[in-house]
């Protein structure tokens, strides 16, 4: 198990093949410790700044002060009117989710969750950057035009916009093609 954890850390095991490891690290206290320690070793070897001794506990305490971190609608809390009964239900549900997750994960296992979350975030950031570049390269006029129309955009939370997966554009072109889409493939349709 520890060897596999080490391999996962070194990117020698694909994330999607590592579900059993994740599960193992969540249920097995020792494996979770190993994961944390390997990260610590790596940080020290790379000369990363050492964190204060109680960093994890302090961080978790601060996160506890933010009750709706896992809410699926977190980004929409400021949105007026859209809230309604549906959202009350959401909030109740997300609080329950937050509690569920916490109760399942004793403090020592949290780094696992954090590293997974970090990977997801990295993937999203990369995806978004790729889309941004494409938009910049291929559709500069459209972007300029969009800036003029940005009134509506401004009402949306800026941090929540991410790229729409290219699969959706491909699915759209497969089921509802425009006459030119048979011959000219759009910017985010990569071959």
């Amino acid at each position: 198990m520890t060897e596999q954890i080490s391999a996962l850390l070194d990117d020698e095991i694909a994330l999607e093949d590592a579900e059993h490891l994740m599960a193992g690290m969540q249920t097995n206290g020792h494996a979770g410790e190993v994961w944390s320690q390997y990260h610590l070793i790596g940080d020290v070897m790379r000369g990363a700044n050492a964190l204060s001794p109680n960093f994890k506990q302090n961080l978790m305490a601060k996160i506890d002060l933010e009750p709706t971190v896992l809410s699926p609608n977190a980004a929409w809390v400021n949105e007026p009117k859209v809230l309604s009964e549906a959202n009350e239900l959401n909030e109740a549900r997300s609080k329950k989710q937050a509690l569920d997750v916490k109760s399942k994960l004793p403090a020592t296992h949290l780094p696992v969750v954090w590293s997974v979350a970090a990977s997801c975030a990295a993937v999203m950031v990369v995806g978004w950057m790729v889309l941004q570049t494409q938009v910049g390269n291929q559709a500069a006029p459209a972007m300029v035009a969009q800036a003029a129309l940005s009134q509506e955009v401004a009402t949306l939370p800026a941090t929540s916009e991410q790229g729409v997966p290219a699969e959706y554009l491909m699915a759209h072109q497969a089921s509802a093609p425009s006459a030119s889409s048979y011959y000219i493939q759009s910017a985010s349709y990569t071959e």
């Binding site: 999203m124 889309l131 972007m143 929540s160 991410q162 729409v164 759009s186 910017a187």
Partner: peptide
Amino acid sequence: PITSGVKPRAGHSVVGNT
């Protein structure tokens, strides 16, 4: 359905004619 742990997307964009 929104995947838990994945931040939902919201907003406009224009790429080419789409």
